Amino acid sequence: MTGARLGIVGGLGPLAGAHFYRRLIELTPAEVDEDHLAVVLISQPSIPSRRKFLADQGPSPAPALQQVVRELESLGCDLIAIPSSTTHAFYDDMAAAVHTPILHLLAEVAAALRSAGAHRPAMLATQATIDTGIYQPHFRPDLRPLYPPPTVQNKIEALINAVKRGDDVKPLSAEISNVVSGPWTTPADSVLLACTETPLITPTTCSLPIFSATDILARAVLKRLRPEHSPATQCSYGWWT
C-alpha cells in the first residue's frame, strides 16, 4: 500500500468525526476509489468530556487523547487531524505525545478567515471554546469575533447537544437559521461554524458568508497530502467554507 495516510481523532462527537471524513471525501477531486486518501479513523467517544473538564466538572481528557494519537502514529499515519475546536485546548498535550504532525484546526480557521478578508465573524461555538478563548491567539488584531448573548448561546449549546444525541438534523437546521438571523449578528460580516457539530446543521437561510471549521480542516488536509489537487475555497453551495 502506497500514499500518504491520514489519522483522524474521532468521537468528539461521533457524528462530527464521521461528517469530517465525509466532507474530506466530497472535497477530494477523485475519479475512482484509488484517488482518495488512505484514512485511519479512531472514534473513541469514551474520552472524558472536554467541555466538562474545562468547566471544572470532570477528569482530564488529555491522557485518553494522547493514547489515541499514539495509536494513530503506530498505525503509520503521516498526518493527524482533530475535527473538534474545543479539543484543541489539549493540542499541546497531544502534540507532545507523538512525532507525527498534527494539524491545528484553530490556526487553519484563522488563516482561512484572514485569506477571505473576514473581520467580524459571528461565532457558533461551545461555551467551553468561548470561555477558554482558545481561538483568540490565532486571530490577527483586526479580527474581532462576535459572540452571542447568553440566551442565544444557551440555544446554540442545546442545538450542539441535539446533534450529539443524533436528533433529526432538518428541524435543527431551521432552528440554527433563526439563531444566525437574530439581531446579535447585525455587526457581523460572516458566520463561523466553529463547533464541528454545527456544520451538520448548516443554516438553510443566511445572508452572510458561512465558514465551516470542518471544511477548512478538510481542505487543509488536502493541501498538505494532495497539494496538486487542493480544492477551491468556495464550496458548491455558494457559501465560503
Rank of each mutant, 00 (worst) to 15 (best):
R5C: 11
L6M: 00
I8L: 11
A18F: 04
I25E: 15
E26M: 11
T28C: 03
P29V: 09
V32C: 15
D33L: 03
A38T: 06
A38V: 06
V39N: 04
L41E: 07
P45F: 11
P48I: 06
R51F: 14
R51E: 15
D56T: 12
P61C: 06
A62F: 10
Q67C: 01
S74M: 15
G76E: 00
G76L: 04
I80G: 01
A81H: 06
A81T: 08
I82Q: 04
P83S: 07
P83W: 08
S84H: 07
S85N: 15
A89K: 06
F90V: 00
Y91G: 07
A95C: 03
A97H: 12
A97L: 11
T100D: 02
A110L: 09
A111N: 09
L113I: 05
L113N: 04
L113S: 00
S115V: 02
A116H: 03
G117F: 03
A118C: 08
A118T: 12
L124Q: 09
A128R: 01
Y135S: 13
F139H: 15
P141K: 01
P141S: 11
P145D: 14
P149N: 11
P149C: 04
P150G: 05
P150M: 06
N154R: 14
K155L: 06
K155W: 01
E157H: 12
I160W: 09
A162P: 05
A162R: 15
R165A: 09
K170W: 02
P171T: 08
L172T: 02
I176G: 11
S177I: 06
V179C: 10
V180C: 01
A188F: 13
V191N: 01
L192K: 07
C195N: 09
T196I: 00
T198P: 06
P199Y: 10
T205H: 13
P209N: 11
A213Q: 13
A218M: 07
R219H: 01
L222A: 11
P231G: 08
C235L: 12
G238Q: 11
